[in-house]
Design a binder for these strands. Structure first.
Lengths: 157, 157
DNA sequence: CGCAATTCAATTGCGCACAACTCAATGGCG
DNA sequence: CGCCATTGAGTTGTGCGCAATTGAATTGCG
């Protein structure tokens, strides 16, 4: 683990500020655009992420959805309940393992995919970045995420 | 605004998925590391962001803090109330404009800066990225944020 | 087999983000 | 001057994210 030995605390503070400000701002800016694009689909951004996974897989246990999206049951349980209330998915206990709950698209949930068809194109257009830059961005993000997950940071400063 | 004309909807869907997954994951990974680093300062990550601004400025109206961090009063009011309850800041109505509330560091709030000294270094170390890559990441993030803010996305898909 | 440890979903509690609204103070305009 | 639009904080309600806990089903191990 590098410690950036050549830089003073003051410079590190500024860089840290800039990185976390920028990441926060970008995350919320994406959220804002998605919010507008998804509004008349009746989906929030996290709900859309779950639907993306389900459109790809058709059905999936809650556990697997959580692994894909890095979300735990505390977040997913109420979210899936809302998707079920909206008629987009059904949830049923798995017969072979009664602990597990399988989430399935309803026909209405599948049909929503067509209406969502232009969302990615419009979102990517809104970023105003060429595809190569988006790929580079994704690469950097994935690298930091992997590193942060692996870092095992000690609580005591 | 580019529309990526050469790519099929299916490819765009995948790229969109990857970008928003990656950004989400990175944002939450940062949050997780900050949470550990900040735990025994008694600060949450958004509270830390506010303290960073105040450590730089000393005192600031709520309005200005919101502009810096892109947060509105709905988020800041309860957050600042918690910081005040923790003894880190005071809030007082501005005499020259009774609508405005000025947030000031207490001596305890200023003192916390020393205890937070190693947070940026430890966080940057956890990213395991060289400074140049972090700068590149920040540049890309700022560019997409500016573009998304300027995009003026139409609600109707 | 029987009991303990593990796994999975759900729930509770807290804090943040955002929209919509209220209310008081201010500023501008006729 | 008087009225009305605007501005700045705060409040309410909804939903997400995470920690901690609960409870039931399953697995593993003696």
């Amino acid at each position: 683990m590098t410690t950036h030995p050549g830089l003073a605390d003051e410079e590190l503070l500024r860089l840290d500020q800039q990185i976390c400000f920028s990441l926060n701002a970008a995350s919320r800016a994406f959220g804002g655009v998605y919010r507008v694009l998804l509004r008349d689909l009746g989906l929030t951004y996290p709900q859309y992420l779950v639907m993306l996974v389900l459109w790809e897989e058709g059905e999936l246990p809650v556990k697997r959805i959580g692994e894909r999206l890095r979300l735990d049951s505390g977040t997913l349980s109420p979210l899936l309940k809302r998707l079920e209330a909206a008629g987009l998915v059904r949830r049923e206990r798995s017969p072979e393992d009664e602990r597990s709950v399988t989430v399935r698209l309803t026909s209405e949930g599948s049909a929503l995919r067509e209406r969502a068809g232009q969302v990615p194109r419009r979102l990517l257009a809104a970023t105003a970045l060429p595809v190569e830059d988006l790929a580079a961005l994704r690469g950097l993000l994935d690298r930091v995420t992997a590193a942060l997950d692996a870092a095992e940071v000690e609580p005591a400063p």
